[in-house]
């Protein structure tokens, strides 16, 4: 197995162009597991940890640009106040050791339907910046996932960053696992309020072959809130609205039975998580309508 270790982004892109079958590796928390289990035998590994700029973040034009190599620990510590939904999701990733190594870019590259970072990106309408020697493009995150563990990258492209707007309203993330920590998702749900646009964003994980939004649920709730003037003078939500939102989220899912759970349970749990997280973000919005979100207490 060849081991390529570029020290600049330009070299990394060149290497990927010359070795299109090279497997990029950052924290290695997915790739090494796959190699150990013999699920894949890359002809070469393209180690991205020597590129300092990949593990950084910056702010441009009101958006955050998160380098693909930024470990979860730094994402939580440095961006948790501005990206509370993503931070809650990041806290559920593995153990502290895994969070020190694992990256959002790696999460995207694995493109697992169970990737913890994906639902908050969907709920916030994030974009994935990908690059090759041919140039750069920005993909809306929902166009990034094309199938189970498959994504829209060309063979010479690498993920360079994620572009995401800082929270303008409350955000939440919830994950079902059969253990109280360090657990792969049975299913996940993310919600984000966008008061400036009077929109609600959602993201579902382990609910279908790819992470996805519950678009009907978003439309329904956004419409209900706007029609009743709730964004300007928020009141407690009607139970019927909360229930309908949960039902629509559950209906958006097409989960499977597998070794971790059943399709029926996943559908049920998505509905419960949708209702609860909606309650949490709406309470927060009612109490702090101008808040830009706050870190979860965990």
């Amino acid at each position: 197995m060849d081991f390529l270790r570029p020290t600049s982004w330009r070299d990394a892109l060149e290497a990927k162009a010359h070795h299109p079958d090279a497997t990029p590796i950052a924290g290695g928390t997915d790739v090494m597991v796959e190699i150990n289990f013999d699920h894949r035998r890359p002809t070469s590994l393209l180690d991205l940890t020597g590129i300092d700029e990949l593990a950084s973040w910056s702010e441009h034009g009101g958006k955050l640009r998160i380098g693909a190599g930024l470990p979860y620990t730094r994402l939580i510590d440095e961006l948790g106040d501005r990206l509370p939904g993503l931070a809650i999701a990041a806290r559920t990733v593995g153990s502290p050791q895994i969070r020190n190594r694992g990256t959002l870019g790696g999460n995207l590259a694995s493109a697992s339907p169970a990737g913890d970072g994906h639902p908050p990106l969907l709920a916030s309408g994030a974009e994935v910046e990908v690059e090759s020697v041919r140039g750069t493009r920005l993909l809306p995150v929902e166009e990034f996932f094309t199938g189970v563990k498959r994504h829209a990258l060309a063979s010479d492209e690498l993920i360079s960053a994620v572009h995401i707007a800082p929270a303008t309203g409350a955000q939440q993330f919830s994950k079902i696992g059969t253990r109280n920590a360090m657990v792969i998702a049975v299913c996940t749900f993310a919600i984000a309020l966008h008061p400036e646009r009077q929109r609600v964003g959602t993201g579902l994980g382990s609910a279908a072959p790819t992470p996805l939004r519950a678009i009907e649920a978003e439309e329904f709730l956004s419409g209900e809130l706007a029609d009743s003037g709730q964004w300007d003078s928020p009141r407690p939500l009607d139970d019927s609205v909360v229930r309908q939102f949960g039902d629509l989220v559950a209906r958006a899912a097409s989960p499977i039975d597998d070794v971790r759970s059943t399709a029926d349970y996943r559908t049920h749990a998505l509905g419960v998580m949708a209702r609860r997280t909606l309650g949490w973000v709406w309470d927060e919005y009612r109490n702090h309508p101008s808040s830009t979100g706050r870190p979860e207490c965990a």
Partner: peptide
């Protein structure tokens, strides 16, 4: 409780006391 880790679901943030 103040800390979700004391609740069912723990770090996964599934309940703040509901259910």
């Amino acid at each position: 409780p103040a800390d979700i880790r004391d609740l069912p679901g723990g770090a996964s943030n599934t309940t703040h006391g509901e259910g």
